Amino acid sequence: MSTKIHLDRAHAQHLYREMLRIRRFEARCVELYQAQKIRGFLHLYDGEEAVAVGLMAALGAGDAVVATYREHGHALARGLPMQALMAEMLGKLEGCSRGRGGSMHIFDRERRFFGGNAIVGGGLPLAAGIALADQRLGRAAITACFFGEGAVGEGAFHETMNLAMLWRLPLLLVCENNLYAMGVPLADGEIETDIFRKAQAYRMPAAQADGMEPVAMEAAARAAAAHVRSGAGPFLLECRTYRFRAHSMFDTQAYRSRGEIEQWKQRDPIERLRAWMQDSHLLAESDSARIDAEIGAEIDAAVAFAEAGTLEPAADLERFVLMDSVVQDAPARVPP
């Protein structure tokens, strides 16, 4: 299932730029993490950029996105400002979640980006709720929910699949299958390693996409999104991809070989698209240099903005946790 993409010079360069922005942004995050300016956990998207960039191209401004804890790529591809994202990474008040979310809980109400979730599969029922709300309110919107293949073993996955089909929710389920649920090889945890086939038990239409190829990924995403947008109900899209870096900065990667990683790097979506564009005369050396310089300047500005940011005062520790007295003292809302 796919929709042909008109890959002109502008669109090809857009795909390339967006993937490179994610890769370079996270590379700088690694430096900041090693300098102890980013604290807590850090889960990198290195190698999986084509999934986020291709999928976001199929969504409109009114659609909703629910991400995983590996969501920096999702956030940038969705259009969250890099400065606000970097400030969030550094725990600053100017961050998109006021510095409270950090790396794993990115949120942006304006762009309907409903954040990452530290619980494996935790975003699935939330996405179903958002899709249900849009459906009941008559909004012409769909909800895209990202999750890893490790989440399909969670009860929340099966409950969401069941309810989504029962209620014909406008929900696009996007499984980023990078073959390892943290450190467990897919075949060691799932008897059915083609995740999209699990949709059959719920009579849900599904497809598998090459998550290492941005053009194929966008085509599959547009077809899947069109199905959901038509009112035909939910759709499961499995994206076969691979992370080049460890699960998190604390992962020793004892479960896979260096040779396997290098083999997958031969399919690097950024390098392959760059080479194809150069061969097709869609990316000149001057274009490449300009894009590199622009991304570098954007990242430098984001880091400077974040480092100059402020920490939330300790006096505000309970803010947004306990209901403000103003809200508590407000008169009860009269039912319509």
Score class of each variant (00 low, 15 high):
65 V>M: 02
14 H>K: 14
45 Y>V: 08
68 T>P: 10
17 R>D: 03
106 I>T: 10
107 F>G: 10
102 G>M: 03
10 A>E: 12
87 A>G: 05
111 R>T: 11
27 A>H: 12
70 R>T: 09
103 S>A: 10
47 G>T: 06
88 E>R: 01
31 E>L: 12
106 I>P: 09
96 C>L: 08
67 A>Q: 06
35 A>N: 14
24 R>D: 15
42 L>V: 05
80 L>E: 00
96 C>I: 05
74 H>T: 01
37 K>G: 13
23 R>E: 02
68 T>K: 04
65 V>L: 00
78 R>I: 00
59 L>G: 09
47 G>F: 03
49 E>Y: 04
58 A>P: 12
115 G>K: 05
37 K>F: 12
11 H>R: 15
25 F>Y: 13
32 L>F: 02
67 A>C: 11
97 S>N: 13
19 M>W: 01
72 H>S: 07
54 G>W: 01
21 R>S: 12
49 E>K: 06
85 L>D: 00
64 A>H: 13
114 F>W: 13
19 M>L: 03
24 R>S: 12
89 M>A: 14
28 R>V: 11
72 H>Q: 09
53 V>W: 03
111 R>S: 11
103 S>W: 02
23 R>I: 03
82 M>F: 07
106 I>V: 13
99 G>R: 01
47 G>P: 07
46 D>S: 14
67 A>N: 11
45 Y>T: 11
97 S>D: 09
73 G>S: 06
113 F>L: 09
98 R>C: 12
115 G>N: 11
63 D>K: 00
82 M>T: 09
11 H>T: 13
87 A>L: 04
111 R>F: 09
50 A>K: 02
29 C>I: 08
33 Y>T: 08
22 I>T: 03
9 R>Y: 14
14 H>N: 15
55 L>N: 11
25 F>I: 10
44 L>W: 02
103 S>G: 08
77 A>C: 08
66 V>S: 07
109 R>H: 14
115 G>Q: 07
54 G>S: 04
11 H>P: 13
49 E>C: 01
33 Y>V: 04
25 F>R: 10
48 E>V: 10
19 M>Y: 01
14 H>L: 15
62 G>S: 15
42 L>R: 04
110 E>H: 12
45 Y>I: 09
89 M>I: 12
18 E>T: 15
112 R>M: 00
103 S>F: 01
69 Y>H: 11
47 G>S: 06
35 A>R: 12
22 I>A: 00
87 A>H: 04
101 G>Y: 04
105 H>N: 09
112 R>N: 08
116 G>S: 05
36 Q>D: 15
49 E>T: 05
14 H>A: 15
69 Y>D: 07
39 R>P: 14
